[in-house]
Design a binder for these strands. Sequence first.
RNA 1: GCCGGGAUGGCGGAAUUGGUAGACGCAGCGGACUCAAAAUCCGCCGGUGGCGACACCAUGAGGGUUCGACUCCCUCUCCCGGCACCA
Length: 866
Amino acid sequence: MQERYDPAAVERAAQEHWERTSAFRAAEDPGRPKYYCLSMFPYPSGKLHMGHVRNYTIGDVLARHHRMRGFNVLQPMGWDAFGLPAENAAMAHGVPPAKWTWDNIAYMKRQLKSLGFAIDWSRELATCSPEYYRWNQWLFLRMLEKGIAYKKTGAVNWDPVDKTVLANEQVIDGRGWRTGAPVEKREIPMYYLAITRYAEELLAELDHLPGWPERVRTMQANWIGKSHGVRFAFPFELDGRQEKLWVFTTRADTIMGVTFCAVAAEHPLATRAARDDPRLAAFIEECKHGSVMEADLATMEKKGMPTGILVRHPLTGERIEVWVGNYVLMGYGEGAVMAVPAHDERDFHFAKKYGLPIRQVIDLPGKSFSLDAWQEWYADKQSGRCVHSGRYDGLGIEEAMEAIAADLEAKGLGGRQVTWRLRDWGISRQRYWGCPIPLIHCETCGTVPVPDAELPVVLPEDCVPDGSGNPLARRRDFVECRCPKCKAPARRETDTMDTFVDSSWYYSRYACADNAGRMVDERVNYWLPVDQYIGGIEHAILHLLYSRFWTKVMRDLGLVGFGEPFSRLLTQGMVLNEVFFRKPASGRIAYYNPAEVEIRRDEKGNRIQAVLKADGAPVDSGGVTTMSKSKNNGVDPQALIERCGADTARFFMMFASPPEQTLEWSDAGVEGAYRFLKRVWAFAWTMRETVASAPGSVPLPLPDAATATRRTIHFNLKQANYDFGKFQFNTVASAAMKMLNALEAAPRSGAAEAAVVREGLSILLRLLSPITPHLCHALWSELALGGELLDAPWPEPAAEALARERIELVLQINGKMRGSVQVAASASREDIERAALAAEAACRILAGRTPKKVVVVPGRLVNIVP
RNA sequence: GCCGGGAUGGCGGAAUUGGUAGACGCAGCGGACUCAAAAUCCGCCGGUGGCGACACCAUGAGGGUUCGACUCCCUCUCCCGGCACCA
């Protein structure tokens, strides 16, 4: 054994040992409970970032912990390898996305290996390999057969200069990121997956996922957005025909307050009206500017223009004017809305802006309605009553909705309906670096699926995108093909799939990644569902919802025997860092990495200013945000690993904050982690002979000092085991530190004392081993504490070590801490009360008065209320 | 704008879920060792007042419930995540 802690040597040796013994190779074993521990696979962006280190360390801690608790653990890893950054890299450096991606994978795999994660690498997969994505294509064709996949138009961001579709992140302030041209909305044909068919189940099953964080379930439920309302029509006559304008509302009780209707710019009624009205046509054109992002639509100025078309109110027959509104979405609901300015905030402001009538139809006792300003209660859905509503006057919200829905139904103009906020999943991307959609367009046969036998449709790997559309469309060897039906020359579809398709089922493929003949085989039902899924909170909705949907489709196709893919979910917070920048009067804003910036403080440690180390001049702070390339606020874990080792990086990541919380980076704390590991090593070195000669079990009874040491060890172990259950690894790390503090201070001369130290070290190393496996592996074997640490039994606190005869209770007087009282552990309520009233502080403060009340909390405190 | 979450010393965070606020660590200060420095070790470390015992203030801000509130309720401020083509 070496005296000095040398992380590089320790880690190399441990990793070689695990490699040699195939320690993390997982196999099905019906005799043991299985534990499938999965961290979200990374996008191979180039190198690991701190978020990855955090994510995979959390997963590894859980995997190793469960292994020691006797579970058959599977922890696989792969690559979410398709996506936009590869195309951006291609544009910047002229490298084909395939080469860039595979190079990144090779580098990041080395980095992951150096962190010593207990991963079964034999199951590795990359979504950009044809062996993987052929099953995307295969399942897409099954969905097409079942009508779950279908074609319709959808809106995209269009850059009119580059003549290309832009991703939302490529639209900056409504302009294309490369051209600066104002972005337009375009309707293009796309393929959709009917996730809305599963809306009811996706919502209902959320209640049966107790292992999911409440906040994620709430977010998903709100996203799915089930609402009960009424779909009804405003009849009208146009061009000599009887027509109906359909709308949906959740506030049918306010229907008597409708003063106008609004339709989307793409609505047929708008198109018809614009035919005779050039100003309206121009307005509709204007509505097409801007991005398709909901956040933009929600915050933009609400604008509108009348169409001149009048429709009839379905209940009163009153004439209602139809407007075109830029805030009405064609793809959502009917593309038309009724407007009740008195009871909808958006309609209220719109009506005020354009001088449209506002008619109050709901009243709340004690409130007075005024046209001057919007008040929150106008939209109240609880306790209002109908007014100015004819025969509905006096009805409550629910009664009014019931009556109105019935009347609409009687007239054949509508009725109750359930709607969903959730929209079908558009999977077409006009991009190169993705999974090809396996379809062929034939002039005579139409759109024809590629036959299963011809799968996969392989993506050529040598294209280099240049920002002007999809290079696949220019590849004649890809596009030109024959129609599978009539054998005539035909064109291959060049759109690729959304990368969320790739990540919607990779976790199932890990169970049987070696099966070239089937998407999944029977092993999937051994390993899945995933027992513990770990990933960033930013995936709380989309990725997790799509995966749940995809799983249900696979279940309905008989491919898997489960409907929910992830039994338990841990959503880690993001890793943030401060952003520093300078904005010159002219020219581009410059970002400086926090490593280049020095924080100046006063003698109390309060921050005065931030300066650039290079020139000593101040820089501005842009707050803290997620680490990103564009803001240059990332911290490279590689440097940390090289300087202090993987165990220090892992320990610090776990110690810095609980997993679910956002983590603000600070490199100051790293030193403390490194120092602690060095102390563990040094202590083990000092104790190597003591441990070797110590008895294998602790002789009882122990001398007092040794009893106290042992109690500290077991008490902290109990606390740590409780914290493990809460995924609170920062306090597990604290408990380990407290154990070491106790052991260093412990007596070690006699045989009993040596046995306590030996037991303490054995507990400490096992407790710490999921977090710092290399260090613990080395010390466990050096001290010969028994077999392979990986499979050592997880320690449990001993009842006799925790027991104590006397305990200390907090003494409060009127809720304020005023000292403590010592009582026997078995003391009764009366004993405690007597002891408390006899305490010096109690006598002094009470000064002879009789207390009103004495509150005793067993094992904790006693509160005297004077 | 809408949905979800967060705020505790100079800093990261703890508080057994309504019961000692600040565990553990970082930074800082003082000391030991050293020719010196680094490393290491020991001590102090929320604020105000007091020689001191101690008292008062303090968990983003304001109110409330309770013997007792970081924890529960109401109002507000700021920050973070998501908003369907970033992953």
